[in-house]
């Protein structure tokens, strides 16, 4: 009995004192700027920046492994505040939005799919039930993945609300067909297709798919659009959203979003 009490007492005291001195010796200084940065963040802990919560983002920013403008929710304003704390200058960052590269609402099914209503699950079976293996499956995995509710499924295709979209990139990662891209909100012309199938096949399965006719390539005055692997792609660095390609596209694959909504700032103002 006495032995037990004495042993545990001695062990407890020894370990306690040992840990006390160990914590002194191995004390790690925490950068006070981390606290400051954390204070200026929105504190939503949404994880849209790709870091584990706001605390993780604050640490990453101070250590230089994350972008100042990485906080999708806070946007430009928070980036400026962080820049003030860290003594770095933040340029005006262009706002980006998620853009879907598919417009195929009326693509037929190749087989009847009766599994879970989830794009990832469906794409595991023969690349999904749609006749176009590149196109949107339409079960809305992106819409349920979006932490901000910016994606709505309309007639089987996701529609991005550009005001709510924070360009966090979660939908880009969630889509098994990789149909989303983050594009500068001021670019208004997009190729709504990702199909690399031959034109004849595309024409058979989809009414609005890119058939690689190269008319857009010839029409573009800025050399910004090129057909590669049976698919027209716009170089966002060169595109001025003039809309010439939209006029010549025979399949109406290239879409001018100005028909839907005016851009936030005109293209000419782009830096």
């Amino acid at each position: 009995m006495v032995a037990a009490v004495v042993t545990l007492l001695v062990l407890g005291v020894v370990f306690g004192v040992g840990l006390f001195y160990a914590s002194r010796i191995f004390h790690v200084e925490v950068d006070p700027r981390v606290e400051q940065v954390l204070g200026s963040l929105p504190g939503a802990n949404c994880g849209a920046c790709g870091q584990p919560g706001c605390g993780g983002f604050a640490r990453a920013v101070v250590h230089g492994s994350a972008d100042l403008a990485g906080c999708a929710v806070g946007g430009c304003e928070v980036a400026k505040r962080i820049g003030a704390i860290l003594g770095k200058d933040v340029g005006e960052t262009a706002r980006k939005v998620a853009v879907l590269h598919c417009a195929g609402r009326e693509v037929k099914d190749r087989f009847r799919y009766e599994g879970p209503r989830d794009c990832v699950a469906a794409s595991l079976i023969q690349g999904g039930p749609k006749a176009c293996s590149y196109g949107c499956i339409g079960y809305g995995t992106c819409a349920s993945a979006c932490p901000f509710g910016a994606i709505e499924m309309v007639d089987g295709l996701p529609v991005v609300d550009e005001d709510t979209c924070t360009s966090c990139g979660i939908c880009v990662a969630a889509c098994p067909k990789k149909l989303f891209d983050l594009r500068d909100v001021r670019i208004r012309v997009h190729v709504r297709c990702r199909s690399r199938d031959k034109g004849a096949f595309v024409r058979k399965v989809c009414a609005v798919g890119c058939i690689a006719c190269k008319k857009c390539e010839k029409a573009c005055p800025y050399d910004a659009i090129h057909v590669k692997d049976n698919l027209a792609e716009i170089d966002p660095a060169k595109c001025t959203s003039c809309g010439e390609c939209v006029k010549v596209c025979p399949m109406k694959t290239i879409e001018d979003l100005r028909a839907v909504r005016e851009p936030v700032a005109s293209v000419e103002e782009r830096a």
Binding site: A3, A4, T7, L8, L11, G12, F15
Partner: peptide, 14 residues
């Protein structure tokens, strides 16, 4: 010290 009966609690502590 022949205090094997304290094994569990000592192990936890350690």
């Amino acid at each position: 010290y022949e205090i094997g009966y304290l094994r569990t609690i000592v192990y936890i502590l350690v």
